[in-house]
Design a protein around this nucleic acid. Structure first.
Lengths: 294, 294
DNA sequence: CCCTGTCGTTCCGTCCGCCGGAACGGAAGG
DNA sequence: CCTTCCGTTCCGGCGGACGGAACGACAGGG
């Protein structure tokens, strides 16, 4: 029974000034609260499968979403006929559909980078021997859209499409650092910064200092900030207009990625970032047009 | 290059809203026609971005979907707040969101195969030198969920997530061949088989013969059937219960993939298929339990 | 620069299609 | 077998979506 029934429309006061130029409160963090409750619930239903739940039943979903069974069943029927959800072989169970995967591949943040980053990522992977990846920002999280596994034994357990708090990863720091200040402020608003480890940056002031450092040297590092023992380095990827749209980086165990190794890796990721940016149409020599941010 | 996943056809048809007392309809591949028009329209809206349209505006979408502008705008607002759609930088334009990509990665047909097929696919790619891929069935189409590009110059232009008619590809033949007869009948019902080239199989009887051949030798071939000059070979991937859930194959130019090369490639794909199946828990020596189908 | 066509966005009254409680039927398990 | 749980269907009442129309913001050509 989510009721935001207090959306009282206040008749405009004498001044009749209803046109504030900042309708922006949502930016990225805020979800739902819009109208079209059916669409909202459909999206919530899809998201319920995200934590890795393969097959779910009606009653189970109804409990998680706090919706009546019949409503969940109606939603599922509609989503099945739209192809976004499929019936599992187990009677009365459902799972995400192939069409959803198909649509996801079409998301520009993925599709654009896919083509141009393939070769460069392979090369980065070959030259460094560490897990290489390309990531984009979504809200205050960073999502990997492309990756190469390390050939060795020590693999990272994360999967493509999984998300991590941006401020605790090197790629996330890059993406935050080059985000225009108002957007960054909108994203980092609200509750405190999550601290996955004791080494994570949880203070907003310190984060801004760190981001300034990232901007000044052009790459970011994360030591033990997402997980103890994990180190990563990342550099920006720019589109044709110079905007930072993604980050490319490598990650590996702290035992291999010592301070001076990191410096070499930073060189490699920056090189790769420039190559991919060039593939997107960015001309690096246009240094004058390098956008000022922060 | 127009509509591939645009079989969400039939806009609500303006004045044609008739209350039929026959809720009885066929099953299987039926799309739409359910209630929850809001969800259906939301899905159609998402699908409108599929043909590679990056950014679309309200009026444009309204035209394509044959919906009022205000309704499209309302849908977009809801989808944006759900994260499935994002606002593009161009004022008033929209694009598919990262969350959609994220959900797509969670689709079981993708997620399961991803982990176990990585190594095997790499090896297949290395041993054959041709483009290697893993595909699943969706309706009467086959969708690639994993792939390795050929290192050479002659690359295939298709992208991950794109779909092709199943009966015209080797992977699709494999998937159709091992589909239980009732399901296959349900899928292949209705209008005729598409024939992308003059070599395509368009007759249902001939297709059944071909599928029987596929079952008897355990692999499938497609020569010029999807595109003239393109040849592919594929073998099944089975899950722990022995059901064929995907196909693994290689594709390349007919000039390289001569008859006897194909025989060697069939050996390789079969070998890879068995390896991946083993990763999914399938025990090949359980030959007795090899399901009888067709 | 202004004018104009175009498109995104907002508004609002009407009415229809969704909501959800409750009953039905089928599957699993003791 | 009985019991229990769950997926599916049904239906009346009402809340929220629909969509035409007006508004406001751009962009481009005269």
């Amino acid at each position: 029974m989510a009721s935001e029934l207090n959306d009282l429309r206040r008749p405009p006061a004498a001044g009749d000034d209803r046109r504030d130029d900042q309708p922006e409160e949502e930016a990225a963090g805020a979800r739902d609260q819009s109208s079209l409750s059916t669409v909202r619930n459909a999206a919530r239903l899809l998201a319920a499968f995200a934590p890795g739940e393969r097959d779910l039943g009606v009653t189970d979903l109804a409990r998680r979403l706090d919706l009546p069974k019949s409503s969940v069943h109606r939603l599922l029927t509609a989503l099945v006929s739209a192809g976004l959800v499929e019936r599992a072989e187990r009677h009365g169970h459902y799972r995400l559909g192939v069409r959803l995967y198909e649509l996801g591949e079409m998301a520009p943040s993925r599709a654009e980078l896919h083509g141009v980053s393939l070769g460069a990522l392979d090369e980065l992977h070959a030259r460094t021997g560490e897990m290489a990846h390309v990531a984009v920002l979504d809200g205050r999280d960073v999502v990997a859209v492309e990756r190469r596994e390390t050939p060795g034994l020590l693999k990272l357990a994360t999967r493509l499409g999984h998300r991590h708090p941006a401020h605790a990863t090197s790629a996330g720091k890059v993406l935050l650092a080059y985000l225009p200040l108002p957007q960054r402020a909108a994203i980092l608003t609200g509750d405190d910064l999550e601290a996955p480890t004791p080494h994570s940056i949880s203070d907003r002031g310190r984060l801004e200092e760190e981001l300034a450092k990232v901007r000044s040297r052009g790459w970011a590092e994360s030591r033990h900030e997402l997980e103890v023992g994990l180190v990563s380095v990342a550099s920006p990827i720019r589109d044709v207009r110079g905007r930072v749209v993604a980050a490319v980086g490598v990650a590996g165990p702290a035992s291999r990625l010592t301070r001076d190794v990191v410096r070499r890796l930073a060189y490699e990721t920056t090189r790769t970032g420039l190559a991919v940016s060039a593939g997107l149409g960015y001309r690096a020599h246009d240094a004058a047009s390098r956008p000022r941010q922060g």
